[in-house]
Write a protein that binds this DNA or RNA. Structure first.
Lengths: 354, 354
DNA sequence: ATGAAAGCGCTAACAA
DNA sequence: TTGTTAGCGCTTTCAT
């Protein structure tokens, strides 16, 4: 391994000067600096992250905790984080709670201890242990936590434009298939739906709640969706939408003919399935990039008052992408939806048991 | 931050004893050990990875370089790696080359410098700079590199059983849509196809080569596949298969009715699309776990002769999962495939320009 | 503008 | 069995 000492010897200066030339170039004579940079380059010297951090009491590592890395949503966020981390020369300790609340709490504790700060993505568990979350900077994605910064997509606007889209297609009875009970996004979307209801008096919203944010969750939701008598459904994410569409097809209904389905997140899956999903698009990697930048901003200049006040959540814009899974209510041919039970004017359930 | 010194003071021993009690419990009196462990627990002490590594000349970080984290294949591998890394208490520096060969080379260099060893996943570039790959332990997934250990799924067997499956369905003219020109898996699959050809003399194999390992690559391949006159096609991975199916549908052919399609890797996408893909299944997370274990084995006990000899690649078993995208040739109704050009008895191309 | 020296938290000789 | 001592590679006072 090639160290700062090798460079110093090569150039004939002290290691202090080398360190300065590389981290605080202003403080060293231009001529010296150039020779140092040249030598460092020639020798292929890279500062040892651990050692430099040790002195400064940092690890130069940030943590990333996601519920499920195989969910394309989180993969995209992780890519954004990796990209920014690389630029800032910090390592990323990536971990995956497998959607397990208990594991999430434990992993976060471990992560906080081992890193300078953590990006906590779409937490499902309740994190209130101040000994954990209070000690290090934390950026939360799709959630709010006291003392932590927050990055999210603007679900509110996403829901609003989705409702408008469906409404303009003639749908008046819309179901919502919710995600994990503790999901912040889920709560926000429900309140956006409530707001839409006041805006559009003749709109009925059937809230079906607490499904796993997976294809299987969508499968399971299919029954209640069909039973709800809704002509359109908004789902927690694309995976749920995909599972829902599959099962709905098996039940003998066609999407979008008999039921319009809208996904959320617009992962690349939305465009792979048949019919292609109408979905609420957000820049997923940008979430990761913003979260990382926010975290590093809190880490890097320790030169100002500890900003412990929770700032406003950073809200990224969204855009509804209309594809094949939504269609005008008009296109429905009477008689083709015989599979739907008739006795369902009042909502079957406002909230399912989780 | 709570350090080893705090624990030592609490218990009334030297920091050395604390260190020993935690890393080499045999070497400390049971009574002392217990008090130390208890105190460490009570104080919530966790050794500083960077500091301990610094002393030992290690970083306690391993690198992971994948072409594309949003490819579910690599996400699954990454999950396996994260899981094992957590157990072994090493951080994972995750990076993503975005399928860019140039970036891959640069990133690997950076990763090697910053970590104790790297898992290089499905490299597309040629890595021959001994100053990079010679310095640290390296485990290569889906590739072989001198001096590096190798983990891969048994493509050979996968191709063989795929061919057998298609052959038994009556297909005699099979196309292969290749992946990146420099992909090791691709080369292995081609040789497995060659072998199948000698085994089954009346089998024709049309090799269509060098497509991007993405949905778009599949889209692009559709034209030549149809033109090839093959009745079945094996693709480089599920993404390619998915893109292929979509475009083939647009060209007016039906899968599997007019063309049987087999994917590779059996990512969860295979079961999401319509028709569900027949695909070669391997345990993707297990690849990551094995790779990590191999890497750490080389790192951890530095107590034996540097094992620089390339060991046999670890080959993980595969299994063909038959779904809806493959069907007997018999099921084809004559006349329904009018879109296929007739003049194509000799293969259109054995190898496309990349 | 540069250097000497101290020390971050930890482990590994070497002593006792 | 336990403690003392000496660094790992680097940054950061404090001198010069």
């Amino acid at each position: 391994m090639i160290t700062i000492r090798d460079v110093a010897r090569e150039v004939g200066v002290s290691i202090t000067t080398v360190s300065r030339a590389l981290t605080d170039p202003e403080k060293v004579a231009p001529a010296t600096r150039e020779r140092i940079v040249a030598a460092a380059d020639a020798l292929g010297y890279t500062p040892n992250r651990a050692a430099s951090g040790l002195r400064a009491g940092r690890t130069n590592t940030i943590g990333l905790l996601v519920p499920d890395l195989s969910n394309p949503y989180f993969a995209a966020v992780a890519m954004g984080i990796a990209e920014r981390a690389r630029v800032h020369k910090v390592a990323v300790f990536v971990t995956d709670s497998q959607e397990d609340l208990r594991a999430e709490v434990d992993l976060l504790r471990g992560l906080v201890q081992q890193t300078d700060g953590v990006v906590l993505c779409s937490p499902r568990a309740v994190h209130e242990d101040q000994a954990v979350i209070g000690t290090k900077p934390l950026v939360v994605v799709n959630h709010e936590l006291p003392g932590a910064q927050s990055v999210a997509v603007n679900d509110l606007a996403g829901v609003a434009s989705t409702v408008d889209h469906l409404y303009s297609l003639g749908h008046r009875r819309i179901a919502y298939v919710g995600g994990p009970a503790t999901s912040w996004s889920d709560a926000r979307r429900r309140s956006a739906l409530a707001h839409a209801r006041t805006r559009l008096p003749d709109l009925e919203v059937v809230e079906l709640g607490a499904h796993a944010p997976t294809v299987d969750g969508g499968n399971i939701a299919a029954g209640v969706v069909v039973a709800s008598g809704a002509t359109a459904v908004i789902t927690f994410n694309d995976l749920v939408a995909i599972g829902l569409v599959r099962r709905v097809h098996r039940l003998g209904l066609r999407v979008p003919h008999d039921l319009s389905v809208v996904g959320f997140d617009d992962t690349y899956l939305a465009d792979l399935v048949t019919p292609a999903l109408t979905s609420v698009h957000g820049d997923l990697s940008e979430i990761g990039r913003r979260a990382t930048d926010l975290l590093l901003a809190e880490l890097r200049p320790p030169r100002h008052a500890p900003a412990s006040t929770t700032r406003e959540p950073v809200l990224l814009p969204v855009q509804l992408v209309v594809r094949e899974s939504t269609a005008p209510l008009l296109s429905r041919t009477s008689g083709s939806t015989g599979a739907r039970p008739p006795e369902l004017s009042p909502p079957l359930a406002h909230r399912d048991p989780p």
